[in-house]
């Protein structure tokens, strides 16, 4: 089978600085090696990058995001945060608590809690008092336009509203890296537009690095960099609007 594979280092804009996060020769195998979700992936993401990860369903996009935030672990290879290998659950938990925010397609909110309480959850472990947690969560919900619904149970909110709660929760700790796994995948087009605008506005306001997994070409086009995955391989890694892509094709079986 022919595969196109990209040498990631070739695709990156020259910066000379240490990447914010990087995968080094990372593979992720399931079922004792029978299924390869990702194979020998090298990917470096610089601070301030806006990366769209595209590809067909089952290509390995979500696995890539899971590895980038440490909720999954590579079968081989290393994930580096600011040049240091991150290996333990404890290290990853610390990063997710302060440096990495995640937005899921399925929202992943706690159904028994209100919008405010869901955002507040992300502020636990930061040494804040309950009042300060609440105040901060309320401000975040105001920013995503949910001030009127912050005391509603999340189960009573629309899909778009839930995703905005999830975004508020993801940015609660002012992360440097925001990972969004198909954030508009479960939304109607109007809600999707609101959520997309919100994500990019937050990125601009906070100068966050963003990695966006999407099927939506229009959404992907808003990112400066595009990474395409196919069958667990990175087959494209380009800055379509700035630097010419450097794509290496090679045969792989």
């Amino acid at each position: 089978m022919l595969q196109e594979r990209v040498q990631n280092s070739d695709a990156e804009q020259p910066s000379g600085s240490t990447p914010l996060i990087a995968l080094r020769a990372v593979s992720r195998l399931y079922d004792g090696g029978a299924i390869a979700a990702l194979t020998n992936v090298d990917l470096a993401i610089e601070a301030g990058d806006c990366v769209a990860v595209v590809g067909a369903s089952g290509s390995g996009k979500s696995t890539l995001v899971n590895l980038l935030c440490g909720i999954d672990f590579p079968s081989a290879g290393t994930v580096m945060w600011e040049g240091k290998a991150v290996r333990t659950q404890r290290e990853w938990a610390r990063l997710r608590r302060a440096r990495i925010g995640i937005v899921f397609q399925e929202f992943n909110l706690i159904p028994t809690l209100t919008a405010l309480e869901n955002v507040e959850l992300a502020l636990f472990g930061r040494g804040l008092s309950a009042v300060r947690r609440q105040t901060r969560a309320a401000i975040l919900l105001e920013r995503v336009g949910l001030e009127a619904r912050m005391h509603n149970l999340v189960t009573t909110l629309s899909g778009g509203e839930r995703q905005r709660v999830a975004i508020a929760r993801a940015v609660a700790n002012e992360p440097r890296l925001l990972l969004a796994d198909e954030p508009t995948g479960n939304l109607d087009s109007a809600s999707a537009a609101i959520v997309t605008d919100l994500l990019f506005k937050l990125r601009e306001d906070r100068d966050m690095t963003i990695v966006l997994v999407t099927h939506d070409d229009a959404l992907a086009a808003r990112c400066a960099r595009r990474v395409r995955i196919k069958d667990g391989w990175i087959v494209e890694n380009v800055y379509p609007t700035s630097v010419a892509p450097s794509i290496v094709s090679e045969a792989a079986s």
């Binding site: 935030c69 909720i71 659950q89 997710r96 995640i102 992943n108 706690i110 992300a122 636990f124 472990g125």
Partner: peptide, 16 residues
Amino acid sequence: TREIGIFTAIGWSRQR
């Protein structure tokens, strides 16, 4: 289990 996954994903420590 899923909820516990959510807590982990938002950075809760095992102890918490």
